[in-house]
Simulated assay, not measured.
Amino acid sequence: MTSIRLGLVGVGKIARDQHLPSIAATAGIELVATASRSAGADGVASYRSLGEMLAGTELDAVALCTPPQVRHGMALEALEAGKHVLLEKPPGATLSEIDDLVAASGKTGVTLFATWHSRFSAATEPARRWLEGRTVERAEIVWKEDVRRWHPGQDWIWEPGGLGVFDPGINALSIATRILPEPFFLTGGELDTPENRQAPIAARLAFTDRNGLDLTADFDWRQKGPQTWDITAETSDGGRLHLSEGGKRLVIDGETVVTSEDAEYRDIYEHFVRLVREHRSDVDVSPLRHVADAFMLGRRCRTEPFHDDENAA
């Protein structure tokens, strides 16, 4: 079949590191244009805006890799132009605007795909299958990394809608909502927010489910040295699951079951191709709903100012 002609909006770090090589390695889809104020990709048409790209190049689909605060208008523009749309995570700044995009997608009959890249890690589905049918009594998420390493100079992540430490934390929640057998909900939390920022740099959350699950999450953007992306779960029959390295490694009852290199974004684009071919959409907002609940229910704790330059006063 003819390859899906894709235009990519926002040629930043995540696009260069993950999207561009993954698109190039995926059958059935071809990058034909980019839209960005300051960057492009070799060998394809380059535009300054989505509108210019839609007017200047024949496209079947659009991938949006912009900050979430500006994504709704762009996604709506593409959907109303009859283009399939892939959304980087998080899919939007609010739950309501995503509902609006789902309605627009249904009206125009095109695919809308809200991606959660950590769900495509090698260990996520094996973890889900092992936990299926079991009762999880206790679970712990520890997700700690260095914001200066992963988001250097990106001020948008500290603004309203940028999520702060929930930008990586939502990856953990996307795995947890996929693998845990029962839906869970927030019971309380604390959000550490730097004095000079609008979004938290750390968060500690507590969740439960209808069976009394004891689930905690510890997110922190101040981690130095090795980065920590772990989820553990203990079941009523004594079984223990440990998912680490952001979903690349799975250990069950002390035995390594999965260990794999990163192929998340290639799998994302393979799934997008299938969705388009099958005339389906895939939009799950449960990870973002948990973040919204944390902002609603979490206690604010002011902490020291954050500067991109560690030596700044």
Rank of each mutant, 00 (worst) to 15 (best):
P160W: 14
R280Q: 14
E30S: 15
E190W: 08
V257F: 09
D230W: 01
W116A: 14
D293L: 13
H151W: 13
A176Y: 01
I98Q: 09
E132K: 07
R138V: 10
E190Y: 05
E310D: 14
G153M: 15
E58T: 12
V70G: 08
L86G: 09
T228K: 04
A33W: 07
L64C: 12
G239W: 00
D60F: 08
L54T: 11
E270A: 14
I4R: 00
V110S: 04
D262G: 12
F113Y: 15
K144R: 09
I141K: 00
T177H: 10
R222F: 12
G28T: 12
F272K: 09
V32M: 04
A199R: 09
G161A: 14
G189R: 01
A55G: 15
T187A: 05
I4Y: 00
S49C: 09
T259S: 10
R289Q: 14
S22D: 07
A202N: 05
C301K: 10
L241C: 00
L31I: 03
P90D: 12
R128S: 04
T193N: 05
I231D: 00
L64R: 07
R197L: 13
A25E: 11
M296R: 15
K83C: 14
A139M: 06
R299W: 02
E140F: 00
A61H: 03
A27Y: 02
L112H: 12
G133W: 02
I179F: 00
A103P: 02
W150F: 14
G225P: 05
A45K: 13
W116Y: 15
P226Y: 03
D253I: 01
D309W: 03
H307I: 03
L180K: 01
K248F: 06
T228E: 05
H151S: 12
A172V: 04
A93S: 11
W156E: 15
S260D: 13
R280F: 08
A104V: 05
G189A: 01
A217F: 01
T135D: 09
L20Y: 01
M74A: 12
R277K: 15
R266W: 06
F185C: 02
D308E: 07
R148P: 11
A104M: 04
N311I: 02
T135A: 12
